[in-house]
Design a protein around this nucleic acid. Structure first.
Lengths: 269, 269
DNA sequence: TAATAAATGATAAAAAACGATGGTTCATTT
DNA sequence: AAATGAACCATCGTTTTTTATCATTTATTA
């Protein structure tokens, strides 16, 4: 692995190389990467955080693991979803917006997946989604009509993106779109880590009479790489009570309708 | 894969390995795990508690046992496939047709799903499919590029059909298409039960330089509702040794190239 | 059943790694 | 020249991880 560049290596370049290294060696440590690239731990951690957000690897304490073949065994261990209780509570509140017979769009995401789990009792729903897991779940467990966006599958996000995905859904009309995002900020709008995912989200917004954004509190007042909408394109934002109250008031002052749900405590987890 | 534990391994990694170990050996002891990972009993117990809370195993005095019996759900799709051994054998033979770097199309079906399971070690495959399960499996367990046909999901078949599905894939070119069918007959051609599925299959044939039909012996000399191709559109037919030899000779006499594979006997799995 | 050995849970404490903050450098823009 | 912004890093308080200790519970054996 004598990949040491003597001088001037761009940050982007380094990130690419980190991904390659992790994929080749299956894992790597922060200190490893520090000496490999002659930068400080803080820089490496920044890189790793960004790369994890974009889905290129999985962070652990002390380093990172490749996420490419992490789940070989049918039932092997996966790290728990963070903020799962918050996401469930948000989904439960979002469910109130859905009526029998509706046509809805579900963006890819863990919160929207939780919402999908609550749709099993509807009889005449039509669901448009770009998420393979949501589509597979609903196909198996519900009576909904399902339309999935086609095209390239984005690795580690089990969703489709790109032109073909957009073409599949762009001429549809839905009553409501339930969106997910990685960052919500009054200044910087609503954002997601990659351009191709942003494209699909933009289209999902266009399809809908009403756009509902589901965002747990950990993503409030944050922004990631690509902005795909401004807050005034959102008809309703649902978040959990962990969100900063002043920030919610601030958003409301900007004209955003915000609903806050209470997280149900769960002992068993 | 030869990751020695000599250095430090991450906590996450260790938990993965504990789950795998427990599932493989059905049970394990704390002291076992201590020496395996060179950590203290307290650490192992922490791990075990956490893993039990998440439902990945069951703790006992002195160690832990697998709880696999309860967790059949992720694999329920392969619960009662008929002729599964034949299908596996056919898939294994079909695998010989695939080379690193190929672009292939996989029709929806259980035999093609068995083929998909054999693709995990390829690095640079591109796979086009209209089957949600195949797409989901490959996304999770392989490095292949995946393109899924969009559109309406056909209930109980976990695949897409119809105009949108066709639109997604019609302008693609693939090296090989692996087709499934419900009936193969010299007189009536190759058939499937419904019109919309036939439409997609026709397109999959058009995309390919080479068309390979995977059909277990139970479908030979049968026909179902909609004919989507004639035998001379097929470059290779792979079936198992349960097929009637005279009928195979008859097909060959018609100019169809036929490969017959031996079924490996398997008592379970 | 009672005694004994083994394993466990709880606690605290140390070490390692982490996130956040703010500051430095350097190139580009104004 | 001043302002801006990107990349980087040192510092520090916090979190995670790991371990030792010890009272308690469980399994085994007498």
């Amino acid at each position: 692995m004598a990949v040491k560049k003597e001088e001037g290596i761009f940050a982007e370049e380094r990130k690419h190389m980190i991904v390659d290294l992790v994929n080749k060696n299956y894992k790597t440590t922060v200190s490893n990467l520090c000496s490999e690239f002659s930068v400080s731990p803080a820089t490496i951690r920044n890189d790793l955080r960004e790369l994890e957000d974009s889905g290129f690897l999985k962070r652990t304490h002390g380093g990172a693991i490749s996420n490419r073949k992490a789940n070989y065994e049918p039932n092997s261990y996966q790290k728990e979803i963070e903020y799962i209780d918050e996401k469930k509570a948000i989904a439960k509140m979002a469910l109130q917006c859905i009526n029998e017979g509706d046509t809805i769009a579900l963006d890819t995401g863990t919160t929207t997946f939780e919402l999908a789990k609550l749709l099993v009792d509807f009889q005449k729903l039509t669901v448009v989604t770009n998420d393979l897991q949501i589509a597979a779940f609903l196909e198996r467990n519900s009576d909904s009509n399902i339309i999935i966006a086609g095209g390239a599958v984005r690795r580690n996000f089990h969703c489709t993106t790109g032109k073909k995905a957009i073409d599949t859904i762009k001429d549809l009309n839905v009553d409501k779109t339930f969106l997910a995002s990685n960052g919500v900020s009054a200044k910087k709008g609503i954002s997601t880590p990659t351009i191709d995912m942003a494209g699909v989200k933009s289209v999902l917004i266009e399809l809908a009479d009403e756009v509902i954004l589901l965002t747990d509190s950990s993503k409030m007042d944050k922004s990631t790489f690509v902005r795909f909408a401004s807050l005034n394109q959102i008809d309703l934002l649902i978040t959990d009570s962990g969100a900063d109250k002043e920030y919610i008031d601030f958003l409301r002052a900007q004209g955003v309708e915000v609903e806050v749900c209470e997280t149900e405590k769960s002992e068993n987890k």
